[in-house]
Design a protein around this nucleic acid. Structure first.
Lengths: 361, 361
DNA sequence: GTTTCATTTCGGATCGATCCAAGTATATTT
DNA sequence: AAATATACTTGGATCGATCCGAAATGAAAC
């Protein structure tokens, strides 16, 4: 993904025939400081001098102070970096609809203060962090402390999402347990008692079917947040006397289209499905309909995270708003705010739409 | 959109208690150059010295050369800027599904050479261009030459999309005429003879219905590319003896949901619809179905541009692949390549899916 | 016509690093 | 052991601007 950016050095402005501030100053017969002021504090310079400098600048084709030099003094980049998850590139970040939501949140905060948004190519690579020309970092998804170590060493403000790296670092997360709980509770309230679960796989591989619940160990249900969702499901089901270990589950990569099909085969009598991803939920609904089962008549599906497409889907998908946009906003604010690191926890909201209905009699 | 980013200057590293290269060098009892080499050309430094410098760096908590200083010498940012269309912010760029496609193309090129992608907040503002810490610019959508003038003055490589600013500037565009032509031709080949057109409005306002074709003047059919699509439609229809001036058209903002409804009312007998936006096409299909008309049985719809959602839609939308991702790729390559400005023209492809079928008998 | 005070202008120092020509230590050859 | 080749190190210059205290200018006051 990164054949080490070409290191040929840019030529100095002089050699390119470009005017520098000092050239303008000389041409106008004033000092560098005065010329600088013409561009940055015009009020301090008397009109006649100012005009002379401006004329000189025009003649030399000088547009204004070079950001490089200015930057060196100012020490501020007016930009914030988003680090894509470990093994992603820029494209993956842009393509993933949920991450896109997150970027939007960050972008909103950037827009509001006029800062630029930088997506780092070399994700969590040390070089990417060391050389990024930004005032702070946002880590889109982190699994290990060591991924954020270089940022801490650079002593730039940064924030981490969906991962609590301890007291020294700002972080935002959504209460995925509450989100999962709400999703399952909704289906229970509608009278459903036979469930199926669609979950992420941590590593890329083909879909797997688990006839009886959660295999043990950390690798089990995807990312830590997915494990929280799972426990949220489990707790809600438990209240209705259902042991989630008895609920069939398919684990699959989001791109794996066979997952929906596999789950419907595996849980032929289930009427309620909990999906940890809204894309998988849509795929499940589509597959169910292809098989002639009506949604939400015969079966109900709840997704997780709310992308715009879910609302346009036929039927519109009932899903949990995982507060992803808000997460981006908050993360950016944590970085811009400076100050002592804070930890924010957001509350997901269930959004009831058309993919869920009463359990069939 | 931009309350002028806070200009407080970052403090010098010294004052923050941060070590600089020179501090490390002093602590290790070597020259700055040698210390620099330890980080950049370790092979040049004998092991014992190197270890001394590394130890000193560790003791002082120095991670490596500060990108600011390095940058000043190197003159290269290893980043490329995307300028959102004039009145957009970062959020708008990320939200718009077609622009997102474009960003992906740019991102792909960035990933391949390990460069960062910067989305500029102050779109075409002069300051945004003047101060951006990037090696080149890509203008996502430009309507006036003056918008790119600051970039030209900065003498950084840049490329423009869907707009031909003349020989001096690199540009990429898709042949929208060909795309429009292909869309209309496809419907004609299927036997359709009664059409309706759904087009963009240039300015935000409520949907407008044009019972008889294109009003004159440049403001007529949205952006210049849309005018090309329109002429593409017109030329294809003309070959079948249909004057596009007789085809009902609704112009609307993409977000305006009333447009689909308005067009169906206005063209009750039409069986074929040409939409300049794929989102509008989906909305039109949805509305038609809501009215009990089958797609593609009773009527056919062709969109323009291919977003992933279109393929997942029920029915999958027949649309023109406007080569948006490729546009992004090419634009980025034009910028990275340097050399004399080139002008690339891409050929759109019709993608036949489920929203079009034979005209009803 | 000085003196006083506010307004402009100036030049040296600085931001943090890298390049480069020149100098010094080490290794090799004879 | 001296001469030469090679491998490391070094300090000065530089990248392009801004800051800041001091100097110069101009206006107002006496």
């Amino acid at each position: 993904m990164q054949p080490k950016a070409d290191k040929r050095f840019g030529e100095p402005a002089r050699d390119k025939g470009l005017a520098r501030l000092i050239d303008v100053a000389r041409a106008a017969g004033v000092s560098r400081s005065t010329a600088s002021n013409v561009f940055n504090n015009p009020d301090l310079v008397r009109p006649n001098l100012r005009q002379r400098v401006e004329a000189a600048a025009r003649d030399l084709g000088y547009l204004g102070p070079d950001p490089k030099g200015r930057l060196l003094r100012a020490g501020k980049f007016n930009a914030i970096a988003v680090m894509p998850p470990s093994d992603w590139g820029i494209v993956d970040s842009l393509r993933n609809p949920v991450f896109n939501l997150f970027l939007r949140g960050v972008g909103e905060a950037c827009d509001s203060i006029g800062a630029n948004l930088v997506i780092i190519s070399d994700g969590t690579g040390v070089d990417g962090i060391r050389n990024a020309l930004v005032d702070g970092f946002i880590f889109g998804r982190v699994e290990h402390l060591r991924e954020i170590e270089p940022a801490r060493l650079r002593r730039l403000p940064f924030a981490v999402v969906d991962f609590d790296p301890g007291p020294g670092v700002g972080s935002v997360r959504a209460d995925a347990h509450a989100g999962g709980y709400a999703a399952a509770k909704h289906l229970l309230d509608l009278g459903h008692r036979r469930f199926g679960v669609l979950s992420f796989l941590r590593q890329r591989s083909t879909a797997r079917f688990h006839p009886a619940g959660l295999p043990r160990g950390p690798e089990a249900v995807g990312m830590p947040t997915d494990q929280e969702k799972y426990r949220g499901y489990a707790d809600a089901l438990a209240e209705a006397g259902i042991d989630i270990a008895d609920v069939p589950m398919v684990q699959a990569d989001p791109w794996d289209k066979s997952a929906a099909s596999m789950l419907l085969d595996a849980a032929p009598r289930a009427t309620a499905f909990l999906s940890m991803a809204v894309m998988q939920a849509m795929e499940l609904v589509a597959e169910a309909r292809r098989r002639g089962r009506s949604v939400p008549g015969d079966l109900s599906v709840v997704g997780y995270n709310d992308i715009p497409e879910a609302a346009r889907f036929d039927p519109p998908i009932t899903t949990v708003d995982g507060m992803v946009v808000e997460k981006g906003r908050v993360a950016a604010r944590l970085v811009f705010a400076g100050g002592p690191p804070r930890h924010e926890i957001l509350q997901p909201q269930l959004i009831i739409r058309g993919s869920t209905g009463p359990a069939p009699a």
